[in-house]
Design a protein around this nucleic acid. Structure first.
Lengths: 339, 339
DNA sequence: CCATTTGCTGAAAACGATTGCAAAGTGGCA
DNA sequence: TGCCACTTTGCAATCGTTTTCAGCAAATGG
């Protein structure tokens, strides 16, 4: 293992004290411009890079940010992570991602592991908006930098990045109504998840606007996977209820339902129109292609990361944390063959 | 920010020296059993967890492992990462993942960033088997722990996890031949990638075994995305060549081709059978469902992680690194509707 | 020309843990 | 009781940085 160049080596080379070298490197103002340049040059030429552990032990900052996500199956999460990494790596910050597998207990374990790792801040998408709130509020009270996206904790004032779930659901359902559909079914997402509730609200209000009845047997509470979509379709077909459209919580459920409908020779979109919020990248590869509401995933990640950087910067400058901010991004509507 | 409990706090509480506490915590033998237990109990009760930075600065080990991957679009990579994280988090090791976006230069940047971060080891899937070899061999020469999977560097003796690309490609192509297909087309992957070459070899040898000609106009060199699949199909159709089957480097190209064929009213599988190596989770949602060779992704990740742990353990014990080992895992064959 | 400020630098003490070495404690045996 | 060997503990140095404090020289002001 090659010896790493340290600040001492530079100091020895230039016959300066380590303090002076440190000052040059950290951008301290108490140093002559000429000296700083000499140091900088030698540092570069010797291939110096600071030992992050040493910096950490002095400053308390690890230069690491944790990302805790409920799953990593979907394109949604993967793209958000990409946006986060894009911004944070550029800032020289390490990113550690942990998957909670939709399990609040696992999520709590992840939080604890992040604490042990001494991350400087967290970007979080919760499993359930109702769990682990005590830990989160404890951290908030300690001014620990955190940003939430997608699924946000109930009742806490936090910095968060969202999309306009309600408005876009409303829009999509309205679109199906205007296309002549009268019996629109909704596949709900998990009911302890913020965006699930918002999407259902948009659906409901769109029906109300056009005086369509909210039919109980068209409300399917299921999971969020492809197989849940299949099951939901089964249930719907078995119930004998009349329906000519489906608005699903997410793409996967929509795709599952589409498959099952085809197997039962129900034609999409002729007999049943389908649309959903997008989570994976299935919409364009299934047949027929699926109409979706598409959140700007990578941009959500970038935004969350920037908000976190703001908090970290404030903390580093000894200033108080910026007030919690809610940023709502625009989801895109993609009308495809399924409606 | 709540004060973190340190070894000193424990020492003060027990009126012991920090050295004794340290010895108790690290499992040193020079300590009375009773003392160790007292320390352990108080440590637990005070909620102590060691400051990783302090350990790092003494021992030189960061407890962080880097994972450098060529992309994070596909299910393939995501599942490998899951396997890696599963094993390493359990061992209390941080995992930092960096995406090279299929760009060898970006990959080199990632390597450098990993060096700056002082990761203890790397798990790597290269962009191209021919790039950045000088850096890799430098690290190998320094006994830096590394494990490769999937795409492996040409000409270097390294620890690696692979699947039986050749055998399974052979098998799948043979299967199509036995089903009566005589003009089987191959969509190649990138030619500087190890598994691409192996899959092509399996295809070629299967043809040879049944004395089928290797037809030049059935060899399509394209990329690896859905759109490349669409383009490949276009090219094939435009060429006017006769073909009744396609064996694609990956799922995405197969799906793209399937879509395009359907648009041109070519029936799958009646007129053209399709199969591919699996990379995403599209196989079961497209219509018709796609026959695939399915690498045990999560298991590949787990295996790679364990091999790296072995190397780290050896290093920690002052032993020489274990000799490079190649582990070949079995890919699963999933016959579905497309053939 | 003296007093005070300003600009730059070095010495040294941290940060939290590990570890070689010395010192203290324990017990055995003559 | 005295000596030796062994176990157990404490002291202090160390890892690579940052930062406080003090010191010195030059510059400024009166």
């Amino acid at each position: 293992m090659m010896k790493r160049i340290t600040i001492k080596d530079i100091a020895a080379q230039l016959r300066l004290s380590v303090s002076t070298v440190s000052r040059a490197l950290t951008g301290d103002k108490n140093i002559r411009e000429a000296t700083r340049n000499r140091v900088l040059e030698v540092a570069k030429q010797m291939g110096y890079s600071p030992n992050p552990a040493a910096t950490t032990i002095r400053t308390g900052r690890t230069g690491t940010v944790g990302v805790v996500i409920p799953e990593m199956r979907t394109d949604y999460t993967v793209k958000v992570i990409r946006g986060i990494q894009e911004v944070l790596y550029q800032a020289g910050i390490k990113v550690v991602v942990m998957d909670s597998f939709e399990d609040p207990e696992m999520e709590m374990e992840n939080f604890r592991m992040m604490e042990r790792f001494m991350v400087d801040g967290l970007i979080i998408c919760q499993c359930s908006c109702r769990h682990n709130l005590d830990w989160l509020s404890k951290m908030l009270a300690q001014d620990f930098p955190m940003v939430f996206y997608g699924r946000i904790p109930y009742g806490l004032k936090v910095s968060q990045v969202l999309v306009d779930d309600y408005a876009k659901s409303f829009f999509m359902v309205e679109k199906m109504i205007l296309a002549g559909r009268r019996h629109i079914c909704h596949f709900y997402g998990p009911d302890d998840v913020h965006n699930s509730v918002e999407r259902a609200r948009g659906y409901r209000d769109a029906l109300a606007k056009y005086n369509l009845p909210y039919e109980d047997n068209l409300q399917i509470h299921s999971g969020m996977l492809i197989d849940d979509g299949r099951r939901a379709a089964d249930k719907l077909l078995a119930s004998g209820a009349e329906f000519d459209a489906i608005f699903a919580f997410n793409e996967e459920m929509a795709v599952g339902a589409m498959q099952r409908l085809r197997e039962r020779d129900v034609r999409v979109p002729e007999e049943v129109a389908i649309s959903a919020f997008s989570g994976s990248s299935l919409a364009e590869v299934v047949y027929p292609t699926l109409s979706t509401v598409d959140p700007p995933k990578t941009d959500m990640g970038r935004t969350a990361a920037r908000m976190l950087l703001d908090q970290l910067a404030a903390l580093a400058a000894g200033e108080p944390l910026p007030a919690p901010r809610t940023v709502i991004l625009n989801a895109e509507i993609n009308v495809r063959d399924s409606i």
